[in-house]
Amino acid sequence: MERSGSELPVVYENPWRALGRDLRAVAASCLLALRRLWRRQWEGDLPVPPFWPRRQATLFWPALLLALLLLTLGGGVAVQLLRSPSAETPAETPAEAPIESLPIAPSSAFRAEGTAAGVEATEPSLESPAVAEPELREAEPPEPVAPSPGLEAIALPPGFSDDSGLVMAAPESGIAALLELRISQAFKALAEPERQRLAQQWWHQALGLGYERLRLIDGGGAELGRNAVVGGGMILLD
């Protein structure tokens, strides 16, 4: 409090000092309440449920508090186990290598087209040591093969000759400027230079007979080769 000679209309009291005094009073009151609760607990004076034995009244509230504590701890442990990754989860398998990363050898069609156009095709060198390909022996001209019984041979165009015996038929294509030649399966067994030579020979004959396009097919109708649109020559397909 302020001195009696203060000019204030009422007696001034520091609020912080009053708050400290009140807090001490509240703490003393709580302490007394706890002591009274402790005394009543061990005297069996606290209320208990009807099903609880009256002689064991002093054990009800401690047992209840212990059960709540155990439930709280068990719930915390369960939450931690659910959040942690399971040890039985199988390890992730490595992703397959993308197809783009695998080395792809150039197709034989590209090599044939480059050869027909007069351009020397070069394959890009890979990091792995190149494996020397076995030298191709010059294949001997095969013996003439008779047409299969299931294929009906059609007469070749007038003026067209074939010394290899590989041309089995010349079916009608329905296009006047297109000449289709059905080739024996033995054609695929020849070396690439020999196949290219025969295809070029047939192409020159087709041009001399007035055809603008030449198409080579096998017995099943699959395309084996065709004339190049740009640059002339023949393109062989595997």
Rank of each mutant, 00 (worst) to 15 (best):
M1R: 10
E2W: 04
R3E: 01
L8G: 06
N14L: 11
R17A: 12
R21D: 15
D22M: 13
L23V: 09
R24W: 06
V26F: 06
A28M: 07
C30N: 15
L34T: 06
R35A: 15
R35S: 15
L37N: 08
L37G: 05
F51W: 15
W52R: 06
W52P: 03
R54F: 10
R55H: 13
T58G: 00
L59F: 11
G75T: 14
G75F: 06
G76K: 13
G76Y: 00
L82Q: 09
R83K: 09
P94E: 10
P103A: 05
I104K: 13
P106I: 05
G114V: 02
A121R: 08
L126G: 08
S128V: 13
P129Q: 08
V131W: 00
A132V: 14
E133S: 12
P134Q: 06
L136G: 05
P144E: 10
P149T: 14
P149Q: 13
P149D: 14
L151H: 03
A153L: 07
D162R: 00
D162P: 02
D162I: 04
S164V: 05
G165F: 00
A169L: 03
P171T: 04
E172L: 01
L179H: 00
L181Q: 00
L181E: 01
L181W: 04
R182G: 08
R182D: 01
A186D: 09
K188H: 14
K188L: 15
A189E: 15
E192Q: 11
E192D: 14
E194V: 11
A199V: 05
L207K: 13
L207A: 04
L207C: 09
G208T: 05
L209R: 01
G210K: 01
R213E: 10
R215C: 06
L216R: 00
G219V: 01
G220C: 07
G221N: 07
G221D: 04
E223L: 15
L224N: 01
G225W: 04
G231V: 12
